[in-house]
Design a protein around this nucleic acid. Sequence first.
DNA 1: GGGGTATGAAGAC
DNA 2: TCTTCCTACCCCA
Length: 271
Amino acid sequence: MPEGHTIHRLAAEHLRMFGGLAVAASSPQGRFAEGARWLDGRVLSEADAHGKHLLLGFDDDRTLHVHLGIYGKYAFGEGPASAPVGVVRLRLEGGGWYGDLRGPNTCELLEPGEVKLLRDRLGPDPLRGDADPEVAWWRVGRSRTPIAVLLMDQSVVAGPGNIYRAEVLFRQGIDPRLPGRRLGARRWAALWDDLVELMAAGVRAGRIDTVRPEHMPEAMGRAPRVDGHGGEVYVYRRAGLPCLVCGTEVATVEVASRNLFWCPGCQPPAV
DNA sequence: GGGGTATGAAGAC
DNA sequence: TCTTCCTACCCCA
């Protein structure tokens, strides 16, 4: 489930398991053999997340940069690691724990300068204390691009993905097609604050829940929904089902080869 | 065993 | 806008 909240959890988990320890590194799949050889025996000194990018700092100033993409996953286990199952790009072991990385979009070692370049092309991350929503507003507020597209642009806001964008727009009652410049500073501030709250809850829970208690299916006399992504949401992947709030059929359209979901009743087009 | 799907993004046009 | 990369899982035959 790789949206920003997942990556922040991964950073914290790495620190908890391997922080300050010399780790054993290997690449059972072989595609990161050279990097794993360099990592092997080095001490994990810091673990950070910026948007969907995981940055693990090791002694000697190099940084392991992991981006999960759509498919990437980490699986952690306690005790001596068993023979790797499936295609494991990188395995780290230490302190009685191990972590297996499969299917990442990116798994590479960066020099300090390269880390700075990476960070410089990312927008503020709602989960980071140093995030400044005004920096994002500077882009959003002068753009003709639909807000739904801007929210997926990691150089505008780093961290939200397809679920958070759909859900935060629903919660704020904003038509996804509304151009950024027509949003207004006030609605941007409210949207940002909601993102911060939702994503922080996602970090704590390890899943994306966005439905307010009064709209939970149980409270409405319906059965809880079962969905593969694991959280309770208003519109994401609910196309054709009745909106939990107004009953209108949830709509969907493909935008930039991603599925966008919204409720035409709760998120009416601005006149 | 094949096809479709998925929470992402870069690079080629 | 299209293609490509990456892996696992689900559904269907």
